Computed example of a mutant assay.
Amino acid sequence: MTLPLEPLGTKEPAAVSTIPVSLFASLERLARLVDVSYCLGTTGIHKPFQCISRCDEFPNVTLASTWSTGFLFGDNCGFIAVDHGADQQRRNDGPVEDDKQGAIVVAFRGTYSITNTIVDLSTVPQKYVPYPSPDHGGEEPEKPSHECTNCTVHSGFLESWKSARDSVLPELKALRAKYPSHPIHLIGHSLGGAVACLAALELKVSLGWDGVMVTTFGEPRVGNAGFARFVDDVFDLDGLIDLEKRVYRRVTHADDPVPLLPPGEFGYKSHGGEIFISKSALSPSETDVQLCIGNADPNCSAKDDSSVENLLHRLLHFRWTTASLEEYTERMSFPARFKLWQLFFAHRDYFWRLGLCVPGGDPTNWGRPPYQPHDEYL
């Protein structure tokens, strides 16, 4: 059977070429916050909000609690904090206020080593029920406003959330009662992004909480097509209206293999809400970040989701192409999801290189100040 080659040169331009400066600043700030979570398992995070990495960049954030499960922080860990908002960033013409509204922040740490990252992407599916029964520690649910039909999820991701929920939910309920006007913002990188997704669904569907926001960086595929549709439905990720106001932002990066794993051949699908960083190297600007439409926008990470069959077909039929050199190079390039060496680079390069709990973050970024909005947007 001959498989058709994907047509080249037919991609439509992105619907939105750049994101608003305010959104860029918010994502960059959250990337630094989730980077702090990597101090768990090494030097730690301490009250009021202290660590050897980026904690001093958030003077108005106070630590509520941390958690860890598994041997030597090997399974799941993170922190819960209260962001009182209005971080003061000093500029030549005075202070700048960013993120004025307060929030309760739940940060899920990613996998700590390259070995763990590969193991976490095993592909054992499990039936998904978004609201736990009372027999399994859940509250008696009312009939949910959303139902997940024919949904399966990665069993490792689900077990990771189950192991953390007994630590996370009681603290969140107490903070929600204390700060009823604060939204709950779940953030996570890598494995932490998958766990943040499952946690957010339980808060929204099982507990019926409003004001739940999610921002993930390098989130892998969590479940099958039914599950992806469920996430889109719960967080209103379908359609083209107000893309920049979506409450679920799934940030991806050029050449990062993880958002394309586990592979579609095993039944896994991406959900919507994608925001794509098209620049390969650090540091991106607003013009390098675009809002994506649907869950397989050909202008975003999906353009590198070549199947194994198509990859082999290109390699076996390279003599027959009559394309230009540029088209030939594009056709013969290695798909991103097979570039596992990028787990060291592209998978961690989300505004900053994430995952190193050292003073100032990754040494290659030393001396680069946090992003500051342009004067015309102040």
Score class of each variant (00 low, 15 high):
77 C>V: 05
77 C>T: 12
78 G>I: 10
80 I>R: 02
82 V>H: 09
82 V>C: 11
83 D>L: 02
83 D>C: 06
84 H>L: 11
85 G>S: 07
87 D>G: 06
88 Q>E: 01
89 Q>P: 01
90 R>T: 03
90 R>I: 02
91 R>S: 13
92 N>G: 05
94 G>I: 11
96 V>N: 00
97 E>I: 14
97 E>C: 12
97 E>Q: 14
99 D>H: 12
99 D>L: 13
100 K>H: 11
101 Q>D: 15
103 A>P: 01
103 A>L: 11
103 A>Y: 07
103 A>V: 12
105 V>S: 03
106 V>I: 15
107 A>F: 14
109 R>M: 08
110 G>S: 08
110 G>I: 06
111 T>H: 05
112 Y>L: 12
112 Y>M: 10
112 Y>N: 10
113 S>P: 05
114 I>R: 07
114 I>K: 09
115 T>E: 04
115 T>W: 05
115 T>F: 07
116 N>W: 07
117 T>C: 08
118 I>N: 01
119 V>C: 05
119 V>K: 13
123 T>R: 06
124 V>M: 04
125 P>H: 07
129 V>H: 02
130 P>H: 02
130 P>D: 01
131 Y>W: 13
132 P>S: 07
132 P>M: 04
133 S>K: 10
135 D>Y: 10
136 H>W: 13
137 G>V: 04
141 P>N: 15
142 E>K: 15
142 E>H: 13
143 K>W: 14
143 K>A: 15
144 P>K: 07
145 S>R: 15
146 H>L: 14
147 E>H: 12
149 T>V: 14
149 T>M: 08
149 T>Y: 10
150 N>F: 13
151 C>R: 02
151 C>S: 10
153 V>C: 01
158 L>G: 00
161 W>D: 09
162 K>R: 15
162 K>G: 07
162 K>C: 11
164 A>Q: 07
166 D>S: 09
166 D>E: 05
167 S>F: 11
167 S>Q: 09
168 V>Q: 01
168 V>D: 00
168 V>S: 02
168 V>Y: 01
171 E>F: 05
172 L>A: 05
174 A>L: 13
176 R>N: 08
178 K>T: 14
180 P>L: 09
183 P>G: 09
187 I>Y: 03
188 G>H: 08
192 G>M: 04
194 A>G: 13
195 V>Y: 00
197 C>A: 13
